[in-house]
Design a protein around this nucleic acid. Structure first.
Lengths: 271, 271
DNA sequence: TTGCTCCTCACGTCACGTGAGGTGGC
DNA sequence: TTGCTCCTCACGTCACGTGAGGTGGC
């Protein structure tokens, strides 16, 4: 008969753990002194402790271990181990992805050698109900996109006012169906759950909920290119791939002080 | 100005989290209504929330994030990220090792198709102060080892009694210096912190603390081979390598009922 | 008698999730 | 007025580690 300290040393666990397992009913001492409360263990109990420790070491919860220790169902054990195997594989994949993200942030730090005023995060977009108009632009850059906005936005706002719908946030997204430089510019307003009557050049679309890498750009549209570049590099460094049309959310607009304007850039990513 | 729900949606966090960050001083709302306590956030605060979320996503603690958010020390940030990088690499390695252990247990289950009465665990040996004698055996197997024990053990016990040292657990270990089949059999008793006068054929040694794969064998010495075989296969399957001399701890001995005898088998492993 | 071990509470960990119970705003 | 959102507590999570305060055994 061993006291708790001896048995604990034999099994490489702390006495506190043995008391804990006793309390949970996972491993009762062979005898408890009725006067002193001292716990006594037998060598033969080491086998059960080994099983407990081995299952714990695989990452099973004590509740599951309890079920496995008492029932001699091999299929149940096999099932639990297979499930754990899949979970650990997932954990490894998640941690490897996280490792890449750390590396991407470190490289971004090397490039700018400054605090990341704009930090990249991975997140899900919110579902948006968008009343949008579309125009064509000969290419990217503010000198190309800007005039399209100036043409479409007043018209869209006038339409929304006419149909008594309050526009919320302005959102743009882009696609380039062919390999040439022409870009389709979509610009619209979040209209919440309002309904808008149809008009030829105004379309209502639900932007899909997707995973994006996002960054907040502070400043005017002239300087947005640098933010895009940083975002694209971060995505490359972190091992994600670009997967669709990028969006711009115009969070805050200051005509008087464009440097204080805030735009969220979102680029869809996968893997 | 956004209320907490709107700001939470923008940042893909829960309102509860924003209250938590407020409480910890990591992200204070731009304004709090003095009457209702309603929190108000500005779009420009999204940048700070992004940084917070990005750092949290890398696995940094909120206390460290607090230090990084307030101080604009690039070196500190770089240091934290490098540390995190090393930690995540360690986590990945640990989880991959765990994955192999799960696989080893699953394969052991396939082979026996029964509950692992004897489950393999990885643990550290305890430091032991051993009074031992050494003999040579033509090979492994009870028919070779048994006679050596029968010759050495009574002599050793008689010596210990003569010098008034109480023997504790009996422990044996083996080495085979050459490639031929001859085995050096070391058998001894744990003598705690007692001192033993020297004698030519009795040596006092401290068994080193090492990492071993261990299993409890129940039964006589004839059947110990199967337990060893299971242990060796488990070690192979789990991706560890054998790394030294195996030990046997004679936990419990029943002359009348050898099937109830308990022996712990320990094989040193590495990597 | 002095250490050493044992005992039973009970708090702390970490970043929130989840109610309970109540109030403000359109 | 009815939902919806917000507020402040405060408990629960998971497997123990770490005292506090006291007692038993050689």
């Amino acid at each position: 008969m061993l006291n708790i300290g001896e048995f604990a040393r034999l099994g490489c666990v702390s006495p506190r753990m043995l008391r804990h397992y006793d309390e949970l009913g996972l491993l009762k001492p062979a005898r408890v002194d009725p006067h002193t409360g001292y716990r006594g263990y037998e060598f033969s109990q080491l086998a059960r402790l080994h099983t407990l420790v081995a299952l714990r070491d695989l990452g099973l919860g004590l509740d599951q271990i309890g079920a496995l220790l008492d029932d001699t169902d091999v299929e149940q054990l096999r099932g639990m181990l297979r499930l754990r195997h899949a979970q650990i594989e997932q954990t490894v994949a998640d941690e490897q992805a996280r490792l890449k993200r750390v590396e991407a942030h470190l490289r971004a730090l090397e490039r700018t050698n400054a605090m990341p005023a704009q930090t990249v995060v991975v997140k899900q977009t919110q579902p948006v109900h968008l009343a949008e108009m579309t125009g064509e632009s000969p290419g990217f850059g503010n000198e190309n996109i800007g005039p399209v906005f100036e043409r479409l936005v007043p018209s869209l706002l006038a339409f929304l006012e006419a149909v008594a719908v309050t526009p919320r946030m302005m959102i743009a997204y882009y696609d380039w169906p062919d390999e040439d430089d022409a870009v389709n510019v979509h610009v619209g307003f979040d209209i919440g759950d309002a309904h808008v009557p149809s008009r030829d050049d105004v379309r209502v679309s639900d932007l899909p909920v997707i995973e994006v890498a996002s960054v907040v750009h502070r400043g005017d549209m002239e300087s947005i290119g640098a933010s895009y570049e940083g975002l694209v590099r971060w995505i490359e460094d972190s091992g994600y791939r670009l997967a669709g049309r990028s969006r711009e959310l115009y969070l805050e607009w200051h005509d008087d002080d464009p440097d204080a304007s805030l735009t969220e850039l979102q680029m869809p990513i996968s893997r």
